[in-house]
Amino acid sequence: MGEVLAPYRALLASRLRSQLAYRRSFVLDLIGAVGIGVLELAEVLVIFSSITVLGELDLAGALLLFAFAGIGFSLADMAVGHVDSLPRYLRSGTLDAFLLRPLPVLAQLITSDLQLRRLGRTAVAAVVLVIALSMNTIAWTPALVVLAVLTPLFSAIIFAALFVCAAGVQFWLVEGGEFANAFTYGGSYAASYPTSIFSLPMRVLFTFVVPAAFTAYLPTLVLLGHAGPAWTPAVLGWFAPVAAAGIWTVALLGWRAGLRHYTGAGS
């Protein structure tokens, strides 16, 4: 096992060292990432400066939702978000170099550029999570504690799968890199708001096709004891692992098909 992972450890360590080598750049990047987190928080706060309840959630509930989605997305973005640079490798033909190495291409790509600066955004969401947990009155049971701990984790796993899905599509689109943003960044955007404010087709889309609702909204409903809207009842909040398994299956199948579709640039 250790031997299998050794190349990845070396790759990751080199990436981390390179990012920390230029301290001032790294700090600026980190501040930028904190800024993005604050921007997203500001959007929620500005909206709630004029209203008290959105969907079925008050400000405290909306902040809990925001924190789950924010931690999940930023962790996924840090770990695998850079796979969206795949079109650059495809265009320049440098993907061939990945294919020559005796490691899976996806694993290489993921370990090629882990972005520590994204932790700035995670930090904002984590602070919001602490505040939100103290603002809400939750009837804690052991099961709910487990749910609250696992939700950010599965949120990250689901968003990571969305990134891989988006990357898989690039093998066909190449020029249409932005197309995939609709589902990754769009999924994150939709996940940060109560899914109940969407029309039924959109709610079904962001629950059962792009499982964004599983990353934050549905678990939040369970924690706060809400029933949830028709078609997406709160009980689904327990099924984030199922959603994660489903979307990862799609992601890996899509990736494999994409890689087989790829023909080198002959470089």
């Binding site: 689109l173 249409g176 932005e178 609709a182 955007y189 939709a190 969407f198």
Partner: peptide
């Protein structure tokens, strides 16, 4: 690229 950008703008518009 233009079509992809328009598509993404539209999905964000829906949200």
């Amino acid at each position: 690229a233009a079509a992809a950008g328009a598509f993404t703008n539209t999905v964000f518009g829906l949200i």
